[in-house]
Amino acid sequence: MKELNALLHSQLRLAVMSILMNVADADFVYIKGITGATAGNLSVQLDKLSSAGYIEVKKEFVGKKPRTTCAITTLGREAFCEYVEALKEYIKL
């Protein structure tokens, strides 16, 4: 039986990856709103996903406001698909 990817087998990181699998890109506020996470926790988890190369984080200024936009990478997409396949084995779907 395949082992579950430890990086993805965390509630918030998996939620972020699930959102980003479904959209081209999403900003920090949007992800925070959908997941209901705190800004600090979300920021830490985004850093972990970004360090693993699963997501791309772009920081920019819109007018005077900073904006963080996240998008899933090809590596992240593959990891997510593998994770779902492994999950299927675990729960015998």
Partner: peptide, 20 residues
């Protein structure tokens, strides 16, 4: 949403919820 580890079944539910 602060839980670090959780059940496999919960993972599927979470993915479905986020997609919805």
């Amino acid at each position: 949403m602060e839980k670090e580890q959780f059940e496999e079944k919960e993972s599927i539910e979470l993915i479905a919820d986020m997609i919805a």
